[in-house]
Structures are given as structure tokens and as C-alpha cells.
């Protein structure tokens, strides 16, 4: 028999749901359903913490899980290791991804510029409707499609084509920059300033960087 992908564990702080990070989310859900059905209403009314097993969790997936659990009378407590990628939910808090809680130097109170160690590396393409929010710097190894959104307290570096909306320095850091290999953002925000793409499409140039100079966002070639 296969090793169970979905494990409930009783801990001192209540129930813990441990999910296998390498299994497709849909499969996890169906296993979870089975398990919950088998045990009838044994778990009824409990608060459950979730361990995602290192997976990057979409906000929609989180909600889905919440719904399935709710059907069996379970309440989802805050995840043990929440993922940073959401595809909805403007209100969810900026969350650190699995592992980065260990980083000791978060942004100190009153200081808006995040510590360089507080950086999220993402290796995937952000598609329309997906939103990545992080309380630090973000490096994306992939493209940011139109309709996708990246919000970061620090810098945003896109090693690919940037066509979506980026907000760097979202906590007010005016020193934040945005860099992309192909720089065609729909809209650019740094701290409280906003600039939008020109209406006439200009041909893409080489890698570029955007930063605040004076009271304006300016874009310049990364390599001179």
C-alpha cells in the first residue's frame, strides 16, 4: 500500500494535518475527502493546523482545503508554513514562505527597506490573475504575464519577461528598484508612485531598471 499522502496527527496544540508536498493538489484533496469520510465525524469541531510539506500554495487551493474541511466540521487554523503565491485575496497578509522564518533579520520597526536576506526566490511563470505578495525582495526566474501582479516590500527582479503589474517598496521604500530582462510592465509602482506603460507599444530593448528619481519613476537600461 502507498504511503499515505494525508496524515492527521494529534499534537499538544491540537490537530495537525500533514500534506505530502510532492503530490498534485487535486489528489491530496480526494485523499483528504476519503479520510474524512472514513472517520465520519470523529474530527468534528476541531481546529486543524496544516503543514504543506514545502509546497507553494495558491490562495484558491487554501480556500478549497478550507471548504472540504468545513464540510466535515473542521476549522482551518493558520497554516504552519503558508505559501506566498495567491491567485486572489487582496487582503491576505504578506506571508513568508516555508523556511524563511528562520531568517533572523526581518525589517526592523520603522525601517522600510527589507534586509537582503529576506528574499523570496520563485521559479515559475506568474499568469494572469495570479498575485505574489512578499514582505521582502522578490526574484522571479520566469515571466510575469499581463494580468499578474507582484507586490514586494523590497526590490523585484524578473529574470524573464515582465508584462504584468509590479509594486516594489510596497511599505514605502523609495529606494526599491524593479529590474527585468525584458521590461514591458503594464503598470509600475514604487513606494507610493505609479507609472503606466505608454499607449503606443515601443519595441522591447535590453534589460532595464526602474527606480525613483526625484518625484518620478524613471526607467533606464541596466547595461550602459
Amino acid at each position: 500500500m502507498n504511503r499515505p499522502k494525508v496524515v492527521f496527527k494529534g499534537t499538544r496544540d491540537g490537530l495537525l494535518l500533514r500534506l505530502d508536498g510532492s503530490v498534485p493538489f487535486g489528489e491530496l484533496l480526494s485523499q483528504l475527502r476519503q479520510r474524512l469520510q472514513m472517520s465520519a465525524n470523529f474530527y468534528q469541531g476541531g481546529q486543524v493546523r496544516v503543514e504543506w510539506g514545502g509546497r507553494q500554495v495558491l490562495e484558491s487551493e487554501r480556500r478549497e482545503l478550507e471548504r472540504v474541511m468545513a464540510e466535515h466540521g473542521l476549522v482551518l487554523a493558520d497554516s504552519a508554513t503558508p505559501g506566498p503565491v495567491s491567485d486572489g485575496g487582496a487582503r491576505e497578509k504578506a506571508q513568508s514562505p516555508a523556511g524563511t522564518e528562520l531568517v533572523p533579520n526581518g525589517p526592523a520597526a520603522g525601517e522600510t527597506r527589507p534586509d537582503p536576506a529576506r528574499t523570496l526566490y520563485v521559479r515559475r511563470t506568474l499568469r494572469s490573475g495570479q498575485r505574489l505578495r512578499y514582505d521582502g525582495h522578490v526574484v522571479i526566474m520566469g515571466d510575469v504575464h499581463p494580468g499578474a501582479e507582484v507586490v514586494a516590500a523590497g526590490d523585484v527582479v524578473v529574470l524573464g519577461r515582465l508584462q504584468g503589474v509590479v509594486h516594489a517598496g510596497s511599505n514605502g521604500d523609495r529606494r526599491a528598484v524593479v529590474v527585468a530582462l525584458v521590461f514591458e510592465p503594464m503598470q509600475l509602482r514604487i513606494a507610493e508612485l505609479i507609472s503606466r506603460a505608454p499607449d503606443d507599444a515601443s519595441p522591447p530593448r535590453g534589460p532595464e531598471q526602474a527606480e525613483i528619481r526625484g518625484e518620478q519613476i524613471v526607467v533606464r537600461p541596466l547595461l550602459d
Binding site: G88, A90, R91, G129, M186, Q187, I194
Partner: peptide, 27 residues
């Protein structure tokens, strides 16, 4: 919501700062 297109068809996509949901939620 979630599959917006009207802004694209009108060529206004790059001007969006707030949207219907922000209005509904009072942001």
C-alpha cells in the same frame, strides 16, 4: 471578476489602479 477583458478591449488596461472589488470592499 477574475476574467476581466473589457479594459483590454478598450485599451485601458494600463490605467487600472482600483477596481470593482476595491469599491465593494470600501478600500
Amino acid at each position: 471578476i477574475g476574467l476581466r477583458n473589457l479594459d483590454v478591449v478598450l485599451g485601458l488596461e494600463n490605467r487600472i489602479v482600483y477596481d470593482l472589488v476595491n469599491v465593494a470592499e470600501g478600500t
